[in-house]
Every structure is written in structure tokens, then in C-alpha cells.
Write a protein that binds this DNA or RNA. Structure first.
Length: 423
RNA sequence: GGAGAGAUGGCCGAGUGGUCGAAGGCGCACGCCUGGAAAGUGUGUAACCGCCAAAAGUGGUUCAUGGGUUCGAAUCCCAUUCUCUCCGCCA
């Protein structure tokens, strides 16, 4: 959430910067400022009226105590008018505030000045590329064929018991999932991240805090009976651990890692891009979250980028890092690096991680603040990144490592799988 | 799901109609003490929204949430939410 004060003071600059995100916020911002003007005016009225009532109430109290009932009753008559006027002013103020807040949460985060202009993924900037793309020849199979051949993931079975996008992992396929999860968590723990096991259901306040609501309402599974949402990522429960929290500088940086299943409705997705493991309604992901001082958030973003880079190197997958352009960056993010691995049989890049700096956008929504030594408050910065999401990593491992003997497991994973070949 | 109890500041906890934004303690900050620390000791320590160029100052709001009674509510009434205990169910 952008701060009202900033919107008022830097109206033109904010409008310009949001254009990088392909958003014209002029009308929205002007409405917000107008509603805030209304709110302030009615608050001033209300405050003045309340001040008078408070003073009168005090006087009346004193008069009653000293036995001057007649005078007290005279004053009492004056108060009823004040009260109704104050209620009216309050109603105006509340309504203006409510309307203003509804609009305020519709404004996306400002992109970092270095975020390139652009309308789609085409305009993203490739900032790094590494690893050898294997030449598999024409006999190479896509992962949806490989998983059938080796009987490790069954899409049809998932289809039967739940529906499309809910695969069943079995045998070495299931073991590979568990190996990857443990590998990722161990790596993060070694890098100083404290492990969290979060709930998989969240309330609306949490969805609002990290920005999924109201922007992405409809992308989360919702349970009306209990008014709860299935998490689309562990980012939501983990970051919301710090909702309404005041941190001290010595608590920082906060570093958490969490494995969770993730649930996404993916409404509107279809076609070949979603085949096999490419897009699922339920998938596994290990997420890293950091909370930092504002001036530390960009160095931290680079640190997280390096960390994810290290994971992909250990898995021996060819990958590239793209810096998302304004049109492709999310509602909440100020800057995002996407990591993509090359899937040799599909011959395409698959997004496996997204590392973002939200600056104070989530912190403002969540009231996550830092109180410094002088007692002053300022919003914290939040960041997160996938480290990593499993399905496309699995797809790339299966496709890139296929041989005539079977699928070779990367060395780093063998201690976790207990086998070096799926055959 | 049934019965009962409760929700107060960063935390614990007192407070049953006015002088209560709230005792006391813990924690925290600064000082004294100390070779340094601990202990001891002194002082200070809520957030939010306005007014003011800003600081100082000042008005307002906030004792789970929303409504009500009253000149005046942490305190009384109603509703809601949540927590705890017991019972039921259960991995």
C-alpha cells in the first residue's frame, strides 16, 4: 500500500512511475486525494465538537460533585446538540475514509526506477545466463511421457480423485519430491534461514496483508463456510507472522524458510503451456522470506538472487535470470528477478523462482514497523523468493537428465533420494 | 456441537461510572554506581488521525470488534469475533 502522505506530496511522480507498470492511476489518485480532503474537513469539525463536549462533561461532573445541580442541568441541555452534530461529522468522515481506503488498496506498488518499461514478458531483461543446454537428440521425451514410462507421476490418477492439475507422485517420483524439499530446506537453514511450518489456510486479513486480496481474489481457493483461503504460497502465512508487529533494529534481518503445498485456481489458463507439470493447482514449494531495514532491502534482494543461483548450480540445471519489466511485474512488487531453467525436451524456459522486493508495500498494509533507538517508527521492507518451486524443477531434471539407462539424479540430491538413477 | 470463564499498553497484571491513556511489575532506553559486567539505583518509556512550514505545542480517537445507555464508559446493556476450561467428537 502506498502511503497517503506520499500520494499527496508526490502525486505527479507517482503517476509517472506507475506508467512503467502500464497503469494510469491519475483518476484513482485524484479521487483518493479528494476523499481524503473530505475526511480531513469532517474530522476537524468532529474534533472541535468533541472537544467542546468533553469540556462540558468535565464541568458538569465538577458541578454535580459540588452540589450545584441546577447549573449542571443547564449545561446538560447544551450537550445534546453537540452530540448529534458530532455524529453527523463522524459519519461523513467514516464514509470518506472507507471509500478512500477501498481505492487506496487498488494502487499497485511503485516499480524501482531501474525496472525497464515494457508491456509483456517479451520486454523482460535477461541479466544472466549459465549452464550447458544438453543436446538430447530427436528421441528425447517430454516429462509427461517420461513420468509414464517410469511410473513416477500419474496425472490420470489425480484427475480421477480430484481433477486436472492435481498429480499423484509415486515410488521414486514421490521420493524425489521429498528429497528436493529436504534439500532446499537444509540449504536455506545453512544460509541462516529459520524454518517455519505454516498453516495452509489463511484468513482474509492475511490475504490482504501480503496483497493477494483484493487484487487476486478469485485466484485463491476459498472456503466460504469458514471464510478461509488456501494459501497460494507460503509467503502469505510466513510474512503475515509479522502483521501488526513492531520490530527492533536488532531483530533484523528476519530470515525464514518454509516448505508448503501451494494451491492456485489458475483460472483462465489452458493449452500446451499448462501440460504436465508446467502448471498445477497444487504444487510444492520452498519459500524464503526476509524482513529488513529499508536501506538493506536491495542488497538483500541481490543476496537472495545469489542464493537461488547457488541452488540451481547445485542441481546442475541450465538457467537464466530475467529482470521483469514494468508490465510483467506483480501488483505488489517493486523489483522482481525471475529464474528460468531450460527444459531440453520441451525446448523452452520454465519459470522456477521469482525473487522480489516489496519495499514497504506489504509492510504498510500489515502495519509491520521498526522502532529505532530514538523511539521513531518506520515501515520495514519485505522480500521473498521461491527457493525453489518443485514441479518445473522436476520437469527439467527429468527431461535434461534422461539417458538410455534412465534418469540421472544430480549429485547434490543423491544423499536425499538414496538412489542415483530412475529406471 | 453443549456448558462455563475470559479478552486492558511490547509482555504480565490492577482497575465496576468522572480527576483513567490507564496502578504495579517485567522489558526497553538513558544516567549513576563498577576496572568491566551483573546486582543496585534514578529518570523516561503506547499507537493512530488532525491543526501548525517544522519543532515545540495542541485537539481528537483507541482498554477484542460493532452498536447502545449516560452530560460523562475500560467500568453498565446488546450483538459479534476470538481465547481458555470441562463435556462430546477425533488425527
Amino acid at each position: 500500500m502506498l502511503l497517503l502522505q506520499d500520494i499527496r506530496e508526490q502525486r505527479a511522480e507517482i503517476i509517472t512511475r506507475l506508467k512503467i507498470k502500464q497503469v494510469d492511476a491519475t483518476e484513482l489518485i485524484d479521487k483518493i486525494i479528494h476523499l481524503d480532503d473530505v475526511r480531513r474537513e469532517s474530522q476537524q469539525q468532529m474534533d472541535a465538537l468533541n472537544a467542546r463536549s468533553n469540556a462540558l462533561a468535565k464541568e458538569i461532573g465538577v458541578l454535580f460533585k459540588s452540589g450545584k445541580a441546577t447549573e449542571a442541568n443547564q449545561l446538560r441541555e447544551q450537550t445534546s446538540d453537540l452530540k448529534t452534530q458530532s455524529k453527523e461529522a463522524e459519519a461523513t468522515m467514516d464514509q470518506a475514509r472507507r471509500e478512500m481506503e477501498e481505492l487506496l488498496v487498488l494502487l499497485p506498488n511503485l516499480p524501482h526506477p531501474s525496472v525497464p518499461m515494457g508491456t509483456s514478458a517479451e520486454d523482460n531483461e535477461i541479466v544472466f545466463e549459465e549452464g550447458k543446454i544438453p543436446d538430447l537428440g530427436s528421441a528425447a521425451l517430454a516429462h509427461w511421457d517420461l513420468v509414464q514410462q517410469y511410473r513416477i507421476i500419474d496425472f490420470a490418477l489425480g484427475n480421477k480423485i480430484t481433477g486436472a492439475g492435481f498429480p499423484v507422485y509415486q515410488g521414486k517420483g514421490a521420493r524425489l519430491q521429498r528429497a528436493l524439499i529436504n534439500f532446499f530446506i537444509d540449504q536455506a537453514a545453512d544460509a541462516g534461514y529459520t524454518e517455519i511450518q505454516p498453516p495452509y489456510l489463511i484468513n482474509a486479513e492475511s490475504g490482504f496483508g501480503t496483497g493477494q486480496l483484493p487484487d487476486k481474489d478469485g485466484q485463491m481457493y476459498y472456503i466460504p463456510e469458514d471464510d478461509l483461503y488456501l494459501i497460494p504460497t507460503a509467503e502469505v502465512p510466513v510474512t503475515n507472522l509479522y502483521r501488526d508487529v513492531i520490530l527492533k533494529p536488532r531483530d533484523l534481518p528476519v530470515k525464514h524458510v518454509a516448505y508448503s503445498a501451494c494451491f492456485r485456481r489458475e483460472a483462465g489458463s489452458y493449452g500446451k503451456d499448462v501440460r504436465g507439470l508446467n502448471r498445477l493447482h497444487q504444487f510444492d514449494k520452498v519459500e524464503i522470506v526476509q524482513i529488513t531495514e529499508p536501506e538493506q532491502s536491495y542488497p538483500t534482494l541481490e543476496e537472495m538472487r545469489e542464493y537461488v543461483t547457488g541452488l540451481l548450480r547445485k542441481l546442475e540445471l541450465p538457467f537464466r535470470i530475467v529482470k521483469l519489466c514494468g508490465g510483467d511485474i506483480s501488483f505488489t512488487s517493486a523489483m522482481t528477478y525471475d529464474f528460468e531453467v531450460f527444459s531440453a525436451a520441451q525446448k523452452r524456459w520454465l519459470e522456477v523462482s521469482s525473487v522480489s522486493n516489496f519495499e514497504s508495500f506489504q509492510a504498510n498494509r500489515m502495519k509491520l514497523r521498526i522502532k529505532d533507538e530514538t523511539g521513531k517508527m518506520h515501515p520495514a521492507h519485505t522480500l521473498n523468493g521461491s527457493a525453489l518451486a518443485l514441479p518445473r524443477i522436476v520437469a527439467a531434471i527429468l527431461e535434461n537428465n534422461q539417458t538410455s539407462e534412465g534418469i540421472k539424479i544430480p549429485d547434490a540430491l543423491i544423499p536425499y533420494t538414496g538412489f542415483d538413477l530412475i529406471s
